[in-house]
């Protein structure tokens, strides 16, 4: 890669897409850490492969397919969690890998050439202009919604009963939060891929926890760390010629280790 190509349009698109995803992840990731939903996020992203497969087989946009499948998955999961037939852990393990397997089977039966690597590890350098528009719009939607429900969601994350007693509709707020999470997953597949989505949520938030003293500042720091890692990760992948998704997550992890060794305050 020559240096004059540093500002090529495909790199600019990649950076805008990545920055959008980092901003969303900054806000949502904190709640995933606080609510101990890392495995939930992982299962949700695994299920997105089924959405991609359905999109490919039926011939429509894979982002919409992912969104729909993830919504069904999240609803089913919440319903089964409330039924308490199985432990959460077991339930997530079953649903995540069942939908991942069905997704892979559907793709292989479709007899179409599909670059699985792109879905598993992301393909941020092929973000199109149209996709950039989708990234920006979904970022505005998610962040403004999150801003609107922020205090209620923080309160019910700290204690659901207290929130209920203060007449907060906890079911509604939780459903909105899960929908935002689904939008994030559908958006993020392109950037870091199914297997690395959860780390976009968890690593910046866990890093930010070490240097934050309020929920808001943790989200802000988390978003900034994500943005920084996207920029460094993208250029690192271009100059060293390594896959972009893993390069971004690797950068995030470096930040985590550096911050942890300097500021270690709390375990997240």
């Amino acid at each position: 890669m020559k240096v004059e190509k540093v500002f090529d349009s495909f790199i600019i698109n990649a950076l805008i897409g990545g920055i959008c995803v980092s901003i969303i992840a900054g806000g949502l990731g904190c709640f995933v850490v606080w609510k101990k939903m890392a495995y939930f996020g992982d299962s949700l992203s695994h299920s997105s492969l089924l959405g991609i497969a359905i999109g490919i087989v039926l011939g429509f946009n894979s982002t919409i397919g992912t969104f729909l499948v993830c919504i069904v998955f999240a609803t089913l999961l919440t319903y089964l969690q409330n039924k308490k037939i199985l432990s959460n852990d077991t339930l997530l393990g079953i649903l995540a890998h069942a939908s991942l397997s069905i997704g892979i089977i559907a793709i292989s039966l479709s007899n179409q050439y599909v670059n699985l690597d792109a879905y598993l590890f992301g393909d941020i350098l092929t973000v199109t202009d149209n996709e950039v528009v989708w990234f920006v719009l979904s970022t505005i939607l998610v962040i403004s919604t999150l801003f609107f429900i922020w205090e209620k969601l923080v309160l019910m994350t700290i204690n659901e009963s207290v929130a209920k007693a203060e007449n907060i509709n906890t079911f509604l707020i939780q459903s909105i939060f899960l929908t935002l999470l689904v939008i994030f997953v559908a958006t993020c597949v392109k950037v870091v891929g199914i297997l690395l989505i959860t780390s976009m949520l968890i690593i910046p938030a866990a890093t930010a926890r070490q240097i934050s003293s309020s929920p808001g500042s943790m989200a802000l720091v988390s978003g900034l760390l994500g943005i920084l890692s996207i920029i460094i990760g993208v250029y690192l992948s271009i100059f060293v010629d390594i896959p972009t998704g893993p390069s971004i997550i690797f950068t995030l992890t470096l930040f985590f280790i550096i911050v942890l060794s300097i500021f270690r305050k709390q375990t997240s």
Binding site: K36, V154, L155, I158, Q266
Partner: peptide
């Protein structure tokens, strides 16, 4: 107003008493 049984605060949530009182 209600204070529930077993109120514990998770260490992963950074929040001061003041901010918690003012929340919502």
């Amino acid at each position: 107003s209600y204070t529930p049984q077993d109120f514990v605060i998770d260490k992963s949530i950074p929040i001061t008493s003041m901010d918690f009182i003012m929340l919502n």
